[in-house]
């Protein structure tokens, strides 16, 4: 039986092979240093390029990828990241509420600090969400997420 909408294992190639293992794992940069605003917004907010440049103005300038980043930044071209954790359009997920409820990023995104290339580890299908919601007595009425 083919499972529709299950994207576990999706790990697309990104324009720059950004390694979370290097940044979040080895260098232990906290998630919210780059993903600013995840606790204030619906979106997780992929960091703006000026956040990358905070360090990469001086760090690892010899890497061709960093040079690509710096060139694009200087030319005003945004990096086109491929979205890994994508929910269908009819789902409205709010990061803000989940952070406020005390969830850790790894519970849904897996151990990102060990990923060279980000891949989706949980199914993120509705059942996955409802299971946790039922466990934690979070709202399960339809209009919480579908409106």
């Amino acid at each position: 039986m083919v499972k529709l909408g299950d994207n576990t294992g999706y790990a697309p190639k990104q324009p720059i092979p950004f390694s979370h293992k290097l940044h979040a794992g080895d260098n232990q940069i906290p998630c919210q240093y780059c993903h600013v605003g995840v606790d204030k917004s619906k979106h997780a907010v992929v960091p703006a390029m000026n956040i990358c440049m905070n360090c990469h103005q001086v760090v690892k300038l010899d890497s061709p990828y960093i040079q690509k980043l710096r060139d694009m930044y200087a030319n005003g071209q945004p990096l086109e990241w491929i979205k890994v954790h994508d929910l269908p359009d009819h789902v409205r997920f709010t990061h803000e509420r989940h952070i406020a409820a005390g969830l850790d990023c790894t519970q849904c995104h897996g151990d990102v600090g060990s990923m060279e290339r980000v891949s989706q580890v949980k199914t993120l299908q509705m059942g996955f969400c409802i299971d946790c919601h039922r466990e934690k007595n979070a709202p399960t009425h339809c209009e919480s997420c579908h409106y």
């Binding site: 979106h43 703006a48 390029m49 990241w81 491929i82 979205k83």
Partner: peptide, 19 residues
Amino acid sequence: RPVEKIMPYINKPEGVIPG
């Protein structure tokens, strides 16, 4: 499913949080 892209700000204006 279709590939979706995320385009971040190049220089995020202060006080603006997407969403």
